[in-house]
């Protein structure tokens, strides 16, 4: 495939796909609630509107706030660059799983800084809750990725996702995919953990951090979040797809197509989940996270068993 086609398809997925995913989630939710709901491309218009608005900044803010949103988005773009989340990428660098995890942490760190910089009480407590949650979730993500690296004998995500010999350990793919998916729910403040549509201050986690952002800053924050959602969904979709051993033998563009369809299906699933599940009490979130860690642990154990070919 020519490099121009590669580049254009990659840029298209990176720019067009994240808002589309969110649109699909919202549309599914609306349909399940017997509403027509906004069109799936509504997020594009929302983003466009945000760029045109005038920015309101709190008096107490220093430069960190403006910096945080920019760093956040650029880190996430870097992640999208590193992680083999779609099979067709113009450049596939060595994406060590620990680099990936730390890049996620960097993005989160700046979001937290930005939230606290705004000087609002909600920002601070949203940040505190978010950091608690992430502290709990991080082991799950680490373990899920580690289990994948165990079977591939490499910590490079690129190598892991091009590794094609483990049809016998499809259970690892399943567990890791589930774990990554559940992690994304917790990390991005989706439904069982946090309700993204609520604006009741007492229950908010992620939304509390973005309350003070407006216009271009909000645009950056929103886009970061959409992109992160897409990255996570794409990773777990790939894991699920690789349960089917034939996936690795397909041509790249077929793989690409399957992954994109998979991401959309996962988005629909998120929508269904969000309309079925009730939000957990904040106290019970650790219990939920414990189950995610358990799934990751199972994945690690199965991977170890598969790797030593017991």
């Amino acid at each position: 495939m020519s490099s121009i086609a590669t580049w254009s398809s990659y840029l298209l997925t990176v720019i067009i796909f994240p808002p589309l995913c969110l649109g699909v989630v919202r549309k599914t939710k609306a349909r399940l609630q017997n509403r027509v709901g906004p069109a799936v491309w509504q997020p594009f218009f929302d983003l466009h509107r945000l760029t045109k608005k005038r920015e309101t900044l709190s008096d107490t803010m220093c430069g960190v706030f403006r910096l945080s949103t920019v760093v956040g988005l650029s880190t996430t773009f870097a992640l999208a660059w590193f992680i083999p989340w779609v099979p067709i990428k113009p450049w596939s660098p060595h994406a060590d799983i620990f680099t990936v995890i730390y890049l996620f942490a960097l993005e989160r760190f700046f979001t937290l800084l930005g939230a606290m910089d705004s000087g609002s009480a909600f920002g601070a407590f949203g940040a505190s809750r978010d950091v608690t949650l992430n502290l709990l979730v991080e082991p799950a993500l680490c373990l899920a990725l580690v289990s994948l690296s165990i079977i591939a004998n490499s910590t490079d995500l690129g190598a892991i996702f091009s590794f094609s010999h483990f049809s016998t350990v499809s259970l690892v793919w399943f567990c890791a995919g589930t774990s990554i998916f559940l992690t994304s729910l917790a990390e991005l403040g989706r439904m069982p953990v946090d309700d993204p549509t609520t604006h009741l201050e007492l229950t908010m986690i992620h939304e509390a951090m973005t309350l003070e952002a407006s216009a271009r800053n909000l645009f950056l924050l929103e886009f970061t979040r959409m992109l992160k959602l897409t990255l996570f969904l794409a990773l777990s979709a790939q894991c699920y797809l690789r349960i089917w051993a034939g996936f690795a033998t397909l041509a790249p563009f077929q793989q690409e197509l399957l992954v994109l369809i998979g991401v959309l299906l996962m988005a629909i699933f998120v929508g269904i989940l969000e309309s079925l599940v009730v939000k957990l009490q904040w106290r019970k979130v650790p219990e939920f996270v414990a189950y995610i860690v358990t799934v990751s642990l199972i994945s690690v154990f199965v991977a170890m068993a598969g790797n030593t070919s017991l």
Partner: peptide, 17 residues
């Protein structure tokens, strides 16, 4: 605590092999 006991149990699950 419940989460810890679950993880302990998983470790025992592996040890039982």
């Amino acid at each position: 605590p419940a989460p810890l006991s679950m993880h302990l149990c998983l470790i025992l699950f592996v040890l039982s092999f």
